[in-house]
Write a protein that binds this DNA or RNA. Structure first.
Lengths: 235, 235
DNA sequence: TCAAAAGTGTTCGGACTACACCCATGA
DNA sequence: TCATGGGTGTAGTCCGAACACTTTTGA
């Protein structure tokens, strides 16, 4: 016998803002919504929470459904609750944002959901309040990446410093001095130099680096100051 | 006719982690739970969301019920969703954290809820996962206060720099150099010196200051670096 | 040999820290 | 006059930002 009898129950969903990086540009993964309302329109990938899972498990399940992968970087962003956000029935949605290495999973995309990668700045209009979620996720990512090495989650195992810089420049829609950038990044001690070079993007070639996972975990929460004049980007 | 028919509905609640500062120490406001399960035990103040309000409105309503006040600093922290967190029925809870000037409201506390202020470090055991919520809120507050002037929300209109320092020391459970502290705080330009002094805490007396609200709003998101070696406190 | 990108070096100013010292006042 | 906080000053160090220069190599 429940004592919460007078209270109204409602639907709880998870929506995922999924960022990817293809080596040059930052992208967002969205799907064509499969059900009414707004069927056929672009939407964040989401799903309803099930009785025996918590929100993070739900977000992981949703991500696996769509991309086939597990163990992605996943972070709870915020819960959205405007009463009329879903016109059909009241649904509160918890937004999660995910960072994935696009190259690894580009071909595994589920066709069932008509998933597609868009350039972050050229994405289509999204349904409901999903636009607001993406904007908040972007803002949060900028904030976080200015202090913590979170963007490494978007890179493949081996990457070059110019690639890393392109990623930062994509996230901040800005341009940084490459000389200061590489020195700053190397000074963190997070990178391990490899013997091979990447010759695709220049004649001289740029050395590959690999993330020191141990140091990465240990130093993640420290203030690392990756970008110059971070205040500029926190509007 | 709903198309989400197969999905399970559940209860959604808000719980508030309410911090206060009495001029010397940091405190937490908790209540005696009025209903089963766990009736009579200490708990965060909370309530179920209603059909026509969003989460922030709900948190504000809950705060007003308890303290009689509106317009408090309020921030969504995280949503807690372990299936068995409430043993009676599945309830997902959105944790909000609030900062209030304790002096202003100490006497208005609602007796209906048996509310009580505890020293943050000497609080009683709380029900469900409320302990986890408080710990997370504390961590978040430390993080945020190390970069942004959020702690001013805990102070009365007029305050002295030694008081402000006591507040920071309480939050970080640490001791800072008063000479560097005052210089750093004054250099932000956020404080407006008053003519009167506070003579209660020393013979010489300390000047009162007032927050420049305009500059506070404008600079809130900037990185201000209030405490030395912030990395130490981000564990 | 030359263009284009990768990467190292240098200088300057400002911020943070540690610590010494003076100030005001009530008892 | 002295003990007790309040408040200002200073020197050294480190870090970030701006900018010059060298290195490598394919075409």
């Amino acid at each position: 016998m429940t004592r919460y009898a007078k209270q109204k129950r409602l639907l709880l969903a998870v929506d995922c803002i999924i960022f990817g990086f293809d080596g040059h540009e930052v992208k967002l993964l969205v799907v064509k919504r499969a059900m009414d309302p707004e069927k056929g329109k672009w939407s964040l990938m989401g799903g309803f929470i099930r009785p025996n899972e918590n929100l993070k498990e739900c977000a992981n399940r949703v991500l696996k459904q769509l991309t086939g992968i597990e163990g992605v970087y996943l972070e709870q962003l915020r819960t959205f609750s405007k009463p009329e956000r879903d016109p059909l029935e009241r649904t509160v949605s918890v937004a999660y944002f995910a960072l994935i290495d696009i190259n690894k999973y580009e071909k595994q995309l589920s066709h069932e959901y008509s998933a597609e990668w868009f350039l972050l700045n050229q994405r289509p209009k999204l349904i409901f309040d999903h636009e607001e979620m993406v904007r908040l996720a972007q803002k949060h990512l900028r904030y976080k990446a200015s202090l913590h090495p979170v963007l490494f989650e978007l890179l493949p195992e081996k990457f070059t410093i110019p690639q890393l810089q392109e990623l930062y420049e994509g996230i901040y829609d800005s341009h940084f001095d490459n000389r200061n950038f590489s020195r700053k990044v190397l000074s963190t001690g997070l990178l391990v130099k490899q013997k091979e070079k990447d010759k695709k993007n220049s004649k001289k070639g740029a050395f590959f680096y690999r993330l020191d996972r141990k140091k990465y975990k240990a130093d993640f929460q420290a203030f690392l100051n990756f970008i110059p004049n971070p205040d500029k980007f926190l509007s």
